[in-house]
Amino acid sequence: MKKLILASVLSFVGLTAMAQDATTTEVDNTVSEVTTVQDFQEINVADLPAAVVEAVQKDYPTATINKAYKNESDQFKLELSLKDGASGTVYADAEGNWIEL
């Protein structure tokens, strides 16, 4: 008797799953160029304050700033690459002081 009830329930579930209407959904393929990483939003390297650029040139003379990000507290996340192939991320405030995050 238990097997008959179980078989009936499974049959009912299977038939109701197949009876559902196929609906089409419209997909929005809009691509956004804004990148947010840990509350940092990507900015142009040219938009960095002069103090931050000078700090990088002083402390990392062989470094190139690949990407720059800014958060609401005017803190900057910089992705650097060195001429020897090493790369890393540093954080600075608007005055060019290095900070730990």
Rank of each mutant, 00 (worst) to 15 (best):
M1I: 09
M1E: 09
M1G: 14
I5A: 11
L6K: 08
A7S: 14
A7D: 09
A7M: 13
S8T: 14
S8R: 06
V9F: 08
V9Q: 02
F12N: 05
L15E: 04
L15M: 15
L15S: 13
T16G: 08
M18N: 11
M18R: 06
A19S: 14
A19Q: 13
Q20K: 11
Q20D: 07
Q20M: 13
D21E: 11
A22R: 12
T23V: 12
T24W: 05
T24G: 02
T24E: 10
T25C: 06
T25K: 11
V27K: 03
S32D: 15
E33L: 14
V37A: 06
Q38W: 08
Q38V: 08
Q38M: 12
D39P: 02
D39A: 12
F40R: 12
F40Q: 09
F40D: 07
Q41C: 12
I43H: 07
I43L: 10
N44A: 14
N44F: 07
V45W: 05
V45H: 10
V52R: 03
V52L: 03
V53W: 03
E54K: 13
E54R: 11
A55E: 02
A55W: 01
A55I: 00
V56H: 00
K58D: 03
K58Q: 02
Y60S: 06
Y60H: 06
T64H: 04
N66R: 11
A68C: 04
Y69V: 02
N71M: 02
E72V: 05
S73W: 04
D74K: 04
F76M: 00
K77F: 10
K77V: 00
L78F: 07
L78T: 09
L78D: 03
S81D: 12
S81A: 15
D84M: 02
D84W: 04
G85V: 00
A86M: 09
A86Q: 13
A86F: 05
G88E: 01
T89I: 11
V90W: 00
V90K: 02
Y91C: 04
Y91W: 09
Y91A: 00
A92V: 06
A92T: 14
D93W: 05
D93C: 08
A94H: 03
E95W: 01
G96Q: 04
N97S: 15
W98G: 09
